[in-house]
Amino acid sequence: MITALNTTEPKIIPLCGQSDLIPNSGICAAVGDQQIAIFFLPDETPQVYAIDNWDPVGKANVLARGIVGDVDGRLVVASPLYKQHFDLITGECLEDHQVSVATYSVTLLANQVQLSL
């Protein structure tokens, strides 16, 4: 699915304002048909993380609604459906290494969340 977003030039897409974010939790943004889960962790650096909203195990668009935390020091979100953990930085599923989700590069700049493609 990520290929649909690929263009040759890096592209910056504004997604939302900082006030749309919820501290220590996630929200979801649409980029075309793609759904991106964005997590705002004010005490971490960087403060924002983005992965697919699609849960490949539960097969539904729900990851933005999971609980964030850490497992062995890795930042993760737990799927609200069947509780698998997805690494917010690598997209890897901790319970099943065959499974992963795409990650996106996002930045929080001047109270704006931007996606770079």
Binding site: I22, N24, G58, V62, I67
Partner: peptide, 22 residues
Amino acid sequence: EEKHVGLQDTNDTFLANMQKNG
């Protein structure tokens, strides 16, 4: 409340029960 919201399971956050299709 803001300080509690990130602690809750999705069901508690959205005050409803998530079903298999989200």
